[in-house]
Amino acid sequence: MKRSLQQRLEDGPVICGEGYLFELERRGYLQAGSFVPEVALDNPQALKQTYRDYMLAGSDVVLAFTYNAHREKMRIIEKEDLLEPLNRQAIRLAKEVAKEHPEEEALVAGNISNTNLFNPEDPASKEAVREMFAEMVKWCKEEEVDFVNGETFYYYEEAKIALEEIQKQGLPAVITFGLMGENVLRDGYSVEEGCRLLKEHGALVVGMNCFRGPATMQPYIEKIREEVEGYVGALPIPYRTSEEHPTFFNLPDGGCSCSLPTETTFPTSLDPLYCNRYELAQWAKEAHDIGVNYFGLCCGASPSMLREVAETVGREAVNSTYSPNMKKHFLFGSDDTLQSHMTSYRTKA
C-alpha cells in the first residue's frame, strides 16, 4: 500500500508540484485573466502530461487542477453547468497519472482555494463560501483523494472555513496562505498566527504559497516555523520579488522596451523576472535547514525548477537522470575526448 501524507512527512520532506496555472497558459491550454482550468474537459491529455511532468520531476503529489474551479468563478464565465464535471475529471486524471509512478504510487490531492467572494463584513458571503467548499470537498471524498490542499487564502477566516469543510469529510488538510503586500492577512491576523490557529484546529500542514518569491516569503516562513509545532509548508513563486515589491502583482521590468497591454507585468509579462534554478535551490536549502517539511513552487514554476528543489532537499526524482551535466558540452565540458580547438574557444564564444 502507498504511504499516506502523514507517513511520508514522518519519513522526510514531501514535494508537491504546483504551478499548473501559468504552465498550462504557457503551453497554450488556458486563458490568462479568467484563469479557469477548463483544460480538464477541453484537453485532458494536455493536463495529464502536465501532471506527469511534475510528478516525474520529483512531486510526491499529483494535485488535482481545480484551482479556481469553484462556483463563483464558473458563474463569472457563465459555465456553472461544467462545475461538477470539471472537478471530477481533474481528480480522475490525477489518479490515472499517480498510478504511473514507477517507484511508489503518488498521492492525489483535491484542491480548493481563495474564492474572491469572501467578505468578513458580509455573513451571506461566508455562507456562500462554505457551500462552495462543501460541494467541492464532497466530490473529493467521493473520488477518493488522499488529502485536500486548501491554498492561497488571504483571509484567516476563509481558510478556517475550508479546514472545517475538509474535516467534515474526514480528510487530511494542507492549508496555505497567500500573503499580499500589506504583510498581514486581510482580516488582521499575522500569517504566523493564522498558521498556528489552523494547526491547533487540526490541519496536518500549514504554511504559505503563491504571491511571493523566495526572498519575500522566507522571512515569514521562518516566523511560522518558530510559531507552529508540526509540519510547515512553503511554496513560493519563482520570481524575484523584493522588499519594495513583495508580490508578483506589481513587479516592474525596467528593461522592457515596449508598452504592455496590461497595467503591470502580471500576469503575462513576468518572463524576465524569473529566479534561476540555483536561486531556488539556495532558497530550498535555507527552508530545509530551518525545518520546513512540505516543499513546492507555485505559479510560474516549471518541472525543471521543481526537480532542483527536490534534489536540494535530498530527494532523487525519476527524471533526475536528466539533471544538468556539463562535462560533455562542446564548449564548456571537461571530458578529455572533447575537441580542444573548441573548448579553448570558450572564453571568446
Rank of each mutant, 00 (worst) to 15 (best):
A281P: 00
D11H: 13
C299Q: 06
V62Q: 03
D122Q: 07
G181T: 15
E131Y: 12
V108F: 02
L24Q: 08
F266S: 13
Y239L: 04
S269I: 06
E193T: 08
E243W: 15
V62P: 03
T312R: 09
A106L: 06
E144Y: 06
F266V: 10
D81K: 15
E18Q: 08
C256N: 14
S304H: 13
V206I: 07
E279P: 00
N114V: 10
V184P: 00
T268G: 05
A349G: 07
L41K: 08
R92H: 08
T264C: 09
Q6N: 12
G202H: 11
Q167N: 12
H245N: 11
C195R: 00
E25Q: 14
L107F: 09
C298T: 08
N43C: 12
V191E: 02
G213H: 02
V148G: 02
E192N: 07
I112L: 10
G300R: 04
I175H: 15
M1N: 15
A284Y: 03
A134G: 04
T176S: 14
E84C: 09
T268L: 02
T312P: 00
V108C: 03
I175F: 14
K168V: 12
G17K: 01
E131M: 14
K199M: 04
A32N: 09
H329C: 03
S304C: 15
L163F: 05
